[in-house]
Amino acid sequence: MTTVVSFIKQPLVIALLLIVALLALGESLSPGFASADQILRLLIVASLLGIVAAGQNVVILGGREGIDLSVGGVVSLSAIIAGNVMNGADGGILPAILACLAAGAFFGLLNGLGVTLLRIPPLVMTLGMLGVLQGLLVVIRNGIPSGRAAPGLSAFVTQPLALGIPGIIWLWIAIGLFMAFMLNRTVFGHRIYAIGSNEHAAYMAGVPVRRMRIGPFMISGMFAAIAGLCLLGYSGSSFANVGEQYMLSSIIAVVFGGTSLAGGKGGYTGTMAGALLLVILQGILTTVNIDESGRQMVFGATLLLLMLFYGRGRAMRA
């Protein structure tokens, strides 16, 4: 009996159970919600969030209040860069990917340097960087048109690629496998967990703590850049602040996946389920016929309710 309870209390299991429950609820509220087509569409939206959350997850796992508030800015910036580099031509896809990754890595590097060299708390550093990125968006937007997605990119995101499943979902699965490999099977991954659970012990054990703090921020920037690129493919053209919504929802996806904001505990598989859970919840709220105010209230209250299922802090003990 206890094994059953402990199995059910695992974050990944909670998230999966909630996903099934929400799909059933959605189907009963509006028939067709859980049809194969709809689920594919939800998966596409979830994959965009999930890719941003992958980087966020690495930063949070690294501990010491690790958090990246600048991801939303990088997503928007990357969507604009990609739109302008490819400008509707398939030949521009590869240069666009390289440009976006470079931009994401660059801003991640700046975040990492601020956090390590100057020892600025991640929340403050990435918050300041978000302001810079938002300003940069205004500069770019006034100088050049927003650009269009190449047909190849749009097809990759929205059309079936293999087995009737769009390319972006395959990409998300690949990222999931990559993350599982990186976090569980590489020295880099083990070091992230080590630093996240006890930085001092990790340092004493010879982990290059400083260098290890920069890596996660660069990874986060690059994943956000990939998501921005895919978002451009999803929407066709980039518009103002497309990425803003990903800032806090990526953190919530990580939390719903069972990763502790204190770092050192959790993984990406749960985060994938967390992202899907969040997207399904939003999907249900848009199908239900209530006005915006009611939708927001239900969304906020449900988020709080769901958080109660996950790792709550420990009660104070003497």
Binding site: I67, L248, I251, I252, V255, L261, E292, S293, G294, R295, Q296, M297, V298, F299, G300, A301, L303, L304, M307, L308, R312, G313, R314, A315
Partner: peptide
């Protein structure tokens, strides 16, 4: 309820905005 402050107050902010 011992929820994490960053995500919990973000959730209440959505609720307050709805109100």
């Amino acid at each position: 309820l011992r929820l994490q402050a960053i995500v919990a107050t973000f959730a209440t902010s959505i609720f307050f905005t709805g109100l």
